[in-house]
């Protein structure tokens, strides 16, 4: 019995000699134990299958799993509202990446300015602090008034979602640079520019990366909401149009796609983080 449970990943032999496990984070985060993950995912899929087979739920409230699959295959091959499924996802992703990219392009230098100059800090601090807690969705009406409902409006909205997060993450990372590192660089003949790019920037990178991960999440959430309001194509638009026709299967398909893409983005970001900043948390 023990061996079977071990094989399926329900126990962990690495930590079994510890007598105190309650409250020990290393036991909770120890590798292995994936069996429980499959159990929870499997439970919901099986429940959904059973509900579909025995028609427990009205398809208007929750569609059968087969219908969602069929919609997926159909939209993947035939498209929805003049755009293929990949085009819908691709367009949403393009908007996110553009907003994120421009947000980084402005936010990271802004963050350094906030961290490195007292005057800049005092000048921009009220602006940053005002916009930081502002939900980007509250700005949609204004953005539509100014820029209409085209691509530029959506990218601008995503830029607004990204830029403050990036500025604050960069500022906090840059401010965390130990003064002894900066002093050391000065005694080694580095000038201000070299200290910025070779000491302060790498020192801030871990926090900048955390900011990027947060940003990606926020931007992905914002793009779907922006497309719900007005769009020709995109995953959010799919959901919005389908809901008007009571096509719950397409709505659910859209929700699943949003979740999967967001998860995939985070996996990529975590991979890049491990590759690009291996020193993270090890100073």
């Amino acid at each position: 019995m023990r061996k079977i449970l071990d094989k399926l990943g329900f126990t962990n032999t690495n930590t079994e000699r510890k007598t105190v496990t309650f409250g020990d984070a290393s036991v909770v985060s120890a590798p292995g134990g994936r069996g429980w993950t499959w159990l929870s995912v499997g439970f919901f899929i099986i429940l959904w299958c059973l509900a579909s087979i025995f028609e427990w739920i009205n398809p208007i409230f929750w569609p059968p799993i087969g219908a969602v699959w069929e919609q997926f295959v159909f939209i993947f091959t035939e498209g929805y509202r003049n755009f293929t499924l990949l085009e819908h996802i691709g367009l949403s992703l393009y908007r996110v990446l553009m907003g994120f990219f421009i947000g980084c392009l402005v936010g990271i230098p802004l963050g350094f300015a906030l961290a490195l100059s007292r005057v800049m800090n005092r000048l921009f601090d009220p602006i940053v602090e005002f916009f930081r807690p502002m939900p980007p969705l509250a700005l949609i009406p204004l953005v539509i008034l100014w820029l209409g409902i085209g691509e530029s409006a959506k990218i601008f909205l995503l830029f607004l979602a990204a830029v403050w997060i990036m500025a604050l993450a960069t500022r906090s990372g840059a401010l965390a640079t130990k003064i002894s590192k900066i002093h050391a660089a000065y005694t080694l003949n580095a000038n201000k520019k070299q200290i910025l790019f070779r000491v302060i920037l790498p020192n801030a990178l871990p926090e900048i990366f955390t900011g990027m991960r947060v940003c990606m999440g926020v931007c992905w959430g914002t793009v779907v909401a922006a497309e719900l309001v007005a769009a020709e194509a995109g995953v959010g638009m799919m959901i919005m149009v389908a809901s008007k026709f009571l096509s719950t299967d397409i709505v659910v398909l859209g929700i699943i796609l949003i979740g999967v893409v967001a998860y995939a983005i985070d996996v990529v970001m975590r991979y890049l983080e491990a590759k690009l900043i291996p020193w993270r948390g090890k100073s």
Binding site: S180, H183, T187, L188, V199, P202, I277, K282, S283
Partner: peptide, 16 residues
């Protein structure tokens, strides 16, 4: 000035 070098307590190396 590079003519006057300094050795700090631990933690002043560039870990990147």
């Amino acid at each position: 000035d590079p003519q006057r070098g300094m050795v700090f307590q631990q933690g002043a190396l560039f870990e990147w």
